[in-house]
Design a protein around this nucleic acid. Sequence first.
RNA 1: GGCCCGUUCGUCUAGGGGUUAGGACGCAUCCCUUUCACGGAUGAAACACGGGUUCGAUUCCCGUACGGGCUACCA
Length: 511
Amino acid sequence: MKEIRVRFAPSPTGSLHIGGVRTALYNYLFAKKLNGKFIIRIEDTDQNRYVDKAEEYIYDSLRWLGLEADESVEKGGPFAPYKQSERLDIYKKHAYDLVEKGWAYFAFDTAEDLEQAREKSKEGGVSTFQYNAATRMLMKNSLSLSPDEVEQLKQNQPFVIRLKVPKKEEIRLNDLIRGWVMVHSSTMDDKVLLKSDGMPTYHLANVVDDYLMKISHVIRGEEWLPSAPTHVLLYQAFGWQNEMPLFAHLPLLLKPEGDGKLSKRDGMLHGFPVFPLSWTDTETGNVISGFREEGYLPEALINFLAFQGWNPGTEQEIFSIWELIEAFSLERIGKSGTRFDIQKAKWFNHYYLQQKPDVFFAEAISKVLEPCGLWKEGKKLGAWVNLVKSRSSFVADMLTEIRQIATWPVAPDEETLKSKWNEDAKRGLIAFSDLLAEREDWSAEELKFVFQSEMEKLGIKPGKVLPNLRMALTGKAAGPDLMTIAEVLGGTISAQRMRDSLQRFSLLTGI
RNA sequence: GGCCCGUUCGUCUAGGGGUUAGGACGCAUCCCUUUCACGGAUGAAACACGGGUUCGAUUCCCGUACGGGCUACCA
């Protein structure tokens, strides 16, 4: 059997879109599943749209997600270079070969010429001008001009090389996801292969590289399906039809609501990331934060992304990268576009956050606690994590909550104070604060017991005191378990906060 | 407009000629709880439409509608 070799071939024209990340993931999973090679090839043939930082961004993103390439610009490999701008001679040679074989031709039409042709066909009622078998003899190219004229023009004018698409031919393509796709060559146009600046177009470079790099499967977004027949034709033209890779065109990621595919704007509109890492817009200088900065764990993003368009056919939803590799197959990729479901991503993140050990949060938590003079000696980490983890989907959620608890409660929730504060509550609070002050290191269980028996002794219902205790300790009406909060704060601070609050409450309510 | 691709709960999807059409997210209700969450339980919620084929179609075929992509010397 042929070696499995797949490639992710982004072009460095901006941030890596999350859809691109999914394409990379599927390529990676497919390669690893079948013991093949995952290759990253940089398709930087558009000089106008080239963005300097983009290539590095692609590597950083994939590295963050653990999608490491077997062959790439960074890593090298038997088919280097893996950057198209360093392979220009190869494309040029192949383009000229095609001209020689009669499969391509030189075209001298200027932008204005083409514009005119388009105008004219619109007037004639044809909606879109096509440069093809029907029109090419009307244009300025090496098919319509005499050899002398061609030589002359080649000397003095920029020109492109175009594919000579046959007039009447059925182009067939068996897509792994969509089945047979048939297109008549009369509806295709003579795509430019080599641009006038000497750069290849995607079509040429892609086919040449996939062939030379022995790519076995082309797994890419559905936006490429319309040009796939051109690529098939190119394989035929080069005489590589027997080495042609298998194609799998992935369904697109759609906007969460409304029409169209997911875009940068959607993220900003709905307040969720669409980039893996934060990206600084080259034109505006605006920083758009990414999944990583928003607190998504890489394993959660991977798991989530895997399910946007693929499913294992079982009811299992939580998959490690290893399990994904094991379970992945092209056959189980859906055909229809997928609306981007950020809720599901959050749910995955919540799950994966719960799996993290306490030390994972140590640094972030200590940064919040230290300015508040808490947790200096580092021994209460587990208790702090315990307090907030299960309620959180992101580390930031945990920190927000911890910050609220760590901050001295100077402004009690007035609603609660008005409705809950009374003489009984006051008595209970005074008694409990005295008890708390006796010791520093209480456990939540001990406190619970002490509290309960004290309230019993005083003949006060615990429910009357508890909301006020929360107010006294944190200033808030809602939050995590109270006794655990007291444990984590320690006896001294807890008692101090309560006495402090007692005074404040009196001042505010007269009780 | 032309060409190509698609269409099962709001969303991601399973299924497939005869099923109570299954799961997950989200939503609602209940339980747990001082509270907000977490967790647990329950519930509402879908085969786009019209023709065939068939004893029978959500499933196969054809149309229509709708959605998407492409239609550049962008990828």
